[in-house]
Nucleic acid binder design. Structure first.
Length: 819
RNA sequence: GCCGCGAUGGCGGAAUAGGUAGACGCGCGAGACUUAAAAUCUCGUACUAGCAAUAGUGUGUGGGUUCGAUUCCCUCUCGCGGCACCA
């Protein structure tokens, strides 16, 4: 057989240059007309942070997966928008600056350049004309503008309170960024600190953030995680009064999801924060005042980690006060204990040790009464409510005491703390007058530029404080004694609206054009790692809903991402997460150098289902390379035969033609479903069959068939497809300048079917024989059953047996039930 | 503890409106080409017994529904992810 060498390096470089100079796909016309609207396809990959270490094989998978969609959809006549940009603010660049003194501006620029080059080398067909980066003033101008819109609506506010402080990063963290008491970035233990900080009132949208999930096509587990994070729970509030001699009407309100157990409440617990806030010290005896004060001081010192230890060993202190249960008038003791959280519900609970584990643990430690009030779903020892079922008891109890009880709903979701005491982020566009009152930076002063003259060394205060220019700027623009806000915004603010900016990346007058947003949103397919489920997605949905409510966006659902899927993690060859310290990192540049970008792309798509975590297998990469070279050889063999005009089609080619139509159908169905691994397997099956007769001197495929095959590999392996397409121009067919401008080939349903099928014969569910049968006659049940029963190989299974039942699944199998 | 996901050959994985389990790739074995090697190609490859035809077993465990279960239902075990003193 002739030898066709495929020089991946030369071929890929050649087409990269060709695509670059022809501007293929790098600029989408975003102004749609009526007929484009139904055809639009907005494909989005999670905003990437341009890290200094460059592209990782883990980035290659989702980028390729979406690129295949983009190419496939274009070939199917869709108007595709496939933008790219950089989530360029953030800690790593700043930490690097602390170490080296190199300005984050410089390192970020260099990192973006590296990423851009690497992504292009992979053959990702991004629309580079809409490229953007969050650290560009023309981007963060609008991040700041959105902050100001939120502020004007009372949805951005300042509040003093306990915040999560990471002593290593020297900044506060949002609740979402604290992972079991530790900083999600650096794993240091998070401590509580009192600080005045900026918050976004995401809780304003809590119910809609749950409701909206019904309208999107997202993986169910993802929806569940968001719902759990928002943590809606229905229950009741009940007012208990404090038993005081002077009859002053002091009340403590509790929240419970188990109002039905209220007759079992044997004590009450209030959180340290709430006790202080309600200023209940004055009702305590001198002695108790001191004890309670000591306990509260101690509790505040605890870190999250200490509180966790407390799960097993509960602490608390008896206030000496008695509280009256409004349902049975029982007087029960009031404890202060930190197992009740100040920030959830009303900060106080009725403790029912018989029906709550935590209350039980506390009761046992402090020797408190335990009273059972529910058995087998029915109330006991509950006065007039005894005998009722749990469910009806709750509503009847509220109805019986409307003055002291009401139904109530609580959420775990808190407002989003966005202040960061860091440098490399968008400055919060606020200035303070000499009295310390906050004012928005005037709109004409946006973008409110990030000062350059700063000292990066962490001091626990915002690095911007060290900028002379920043202070001078504020005094110059706003007057003597005015000062800037020195904190910057959480980078999640930047990435909460980038998919809108993409539609108008160059617009200097507005954050995005309303018509374009209406035309392009929602995103048709969002591919994003599972690590972004609670943070980024929740914040982005909040922003979209807010901007919709402000009239900047016509999107009734307020849901920016109509369909979302997750990619899995590419693990090292040892099956563990790749990391430098484990020495199991695969460098994509090296794979491209050895095998080419097509091999890297196809291999990663072939590893397994997109959403699964998959270990890297160096040998299997070589297998994919082998497959691509085989394709190259097979196509070239056919082209060579066509050069010889006397060549004739081989007579017996029905099987190959059937397989070709089958593989076109398989890809047509699998590609839009992102089932790339099975699509590639089908291509391999086809080329294996093709190869069997490759040595025949007669033609195996018609010109159009050969071309159809080249077209269907184009989304997966764009370089080799382009090369083969270019070589096929010799065939004299009417062709485009690039295979990537071609349309997707049709398959003929009649040709997908094989001429005959194999019918399996089972006896009592076990396979005993099989026979071939013409596909055209698969509906002839009687003849098929007769054929099965008369098979020589069936004799020993049927002799002397009585057939009780005959089951025929058309074209597949027969099951004979005998006894 | 709660919520969610998963378990199939030596390995990655296919196949679920219930219908031949193991497609495709890797690895392994045998062969062709070659002075030889590489590359490439061909054949074989779930397990057990057998020279073979063939038979039996088999999709984490135990049970159920069914003519028929990897697929549906129940139980348990293990692994992964998220949340976690949220009343």
């Amino acid at each position: 057989m002739s030898d066709y060498k495929y020089d991946h390096q030369a071929v890929e470089e050649k087409w990269l240059q060709s695509w670059e100079s022809s501007g293929l796909f790098c600029s989408t016309d975003l102004d749609l007309n009526e007929s484009d609207l139904k055809n639009k396809e907005y494909l989005l990959y999670a905003f990437a942070y341009p890290s200094g270490s460059g592209l990782h094989v883990g980035h290659v998978e989702p980028k390729t997966a979406l690129d295949i969609q983009a190419r496939f959809k274009r070939m199917n006549g869709k108007k595709v928008f496939f933008p790219v940009g950089w989530d360029a603010f953030g800690l790593p660049a700043e930490n690097y600056a602390i170490k080296t003194g190199i300005h984050p501006k410089e390192t970020t620029k260099a990192a973006i350049n590296t990423f851009r080059r690497q992504v292009k080398r992979l053959g990702i067909s991004y629309d580079w004309s809409s490229e953007t980066a969050t650290n560009n003033p023309d981007y963060y101008k609008w991040t700041q503008w959105i902050f100001q819109q939120l502020y004007k609506k009372g949805l951005a506010y300042q509040s003093e309170g306990k915040v999560n402080w990471c002593p290593s990063c020297q900044t506060v963290l949002a609740n979402e960024q604290v992972v079991s008491g530790r900083c999600e970035r650096c794993d240091s233990e998070v401590v509580q600190k009192d600080l005045k900080q900026w918050y976004f009132k995401i809780t304003e949208y809590k119910d809609e953030l749950i409701e909206g999930l019904r309208q999107v096509d997202w993986p169910e587990p993802t929806k569940n995680q968001q719902i759990n994070w928002i943590g809606r729970s229905e229950g009741a509030e009940v007012d208990f009064s404090i038993d005081l001699d002077n009859k002053s009407a002091q009340k403590i309100t509790i929240f419970t999801t188990r109002l039905d157990t209220i007759f079992g409440a044997t004590f009450m617990v209030i959180s340290p924060e709430k006790f202080e806030q309600k200023n209940l010290f004055k009702f305590l005896s001198q002695d108790n005042q001191q004890k309670v004060q000591e306990y509260i001081t101690l509790a505040y010192k605890k870190t999250e980690e200490d509180r966790k230890i407390g799960e097993k060993d509960k602490t608390g202190v008896d206030t000496g006060l008695k509280i009256i249960n409004p349902f049975n008038q029982e007087k029960i003791p009031l404890y202060v204990a930190d197992y009740v959280l100040g920030g959830y519900g009303t900060g106080a609970i009725m403790a029912v040790p018989a029906h709550d584990e935590r209350d039980m643990a506390f009761a046992q430690k402090f020797n408190l009464t335990i009273k059972e009030v529910v058995v087998d779903g029915h109330l006991i020892n509950s006065g007039e409510f005894t005998g009722l079922e749990v469910r009806e008891a709750v509503s009847k109890m509220i109805a019986a005491k409307p003055d002291v009880s009401r139904s109530s709903v609580n959420y775990k979701l808190r407002d989003w703390l966005i202040s960061r005491q860091r440098y490399w982020g968008a400055p919060i566009p606020v200035v303070y007058d000499p009295e310390g009152k906050a004012h928005l930076v005037k709109e004409e002063h946006l973008p409110w530029l990030l000062a350059d003259d700063v000292d990066f060394k962490p001091t626990g205060e915002s690095p911007l404080k060290s900028s002379e220019e920043f202070k001078a700027r504020v005094e110059k623009l706003y007057g003597a004694g005015w000062t800037p806000e020195y904190d910057t915004m959480d980078t999640f603010v930047d990435s909460s609206w980038y998919y809108m900016r993409y539609c108008s990346s160059r617009d200097s007058l507005q954050f995005a054009d309303k018509k374009r947003l209406q035309d392009w949103l929602p995103v048709n397919l969002y591919l994003i790692g599972p690590e972004h489920i609670v943070l980024h997605l929740l914040y982005s949905r909040f922003f979209t809903k807010f901007l919709r409510d402000e009239g900047y966006l016509n999107l009734p659902s307020g849901e920016p991402f109509a369909k979302m899927r997750h990619q899995g993690m590419i693990l090292g060859p040892d099956g563990r997460k790749m990391s430098k310290s484990k020495g199991n990192v695969i460098n994509p540049d090296e794979i491209i150098k050895e095998y080419g970008a097509d091999t890297l792309r196809v291999y990663e798509m072939f590893m397994g289902p997109l959403e699964a975590d998959k270990p890297w297998n160096p040998r299997a990469v070589a297998g994919v390379s082998r497959f691509l070279r085989k394709i190259y050889r097979l196509v070239n063999l056919e082209i060579a035969k066509y050069k010889n005009s006397s060549s004739q089609l081989i007579e017996n080619r029905a099987e190959l033609v059937q397989k070709l139509h089958w593989v076109i159908q398989k890809l047509s169905l699998d590609l839009p479903e992102l089932k790339y691994n099975t699509a590639i397997a089908a291509l391999m099956e086809f080329s294996n069959l093709w190869e069997k007769s490759a040595d025949d001197s007669k033609l195996l495929l018609k010109k159009e068939e050969l071309l159809a095959f080249i077209k269907i590999i184009a989304p997966l392996a764009p370089f080799i497809a382009e090369e083969l397409y270019s070589q096929s121009k010799l065939l004299g067919l009417k062709m485009q300048s690039s295979v990537h401008l071609e349309s997707w080939p049709e398959y003929e349903a009649s040709l997908v079917q094989k001429a005959s099928v194999v019918v399996v014969v089972q006896v009592n569910g076990k396979v005993r024989s099989q026979f071939e049968w013409p596909t055209s006659r698969i509906d002839e049940k009687e003849s098929i059953l007769n054929e099965a029963k008369s098979l020589e190989s069936m004799k020993k299974w049927l002799d002397g047996q009585k057939i009780q039942k005959e089951i025929y699944i058309p074209g597949k199998l027969i099951n004979l039930v005998v006894s």
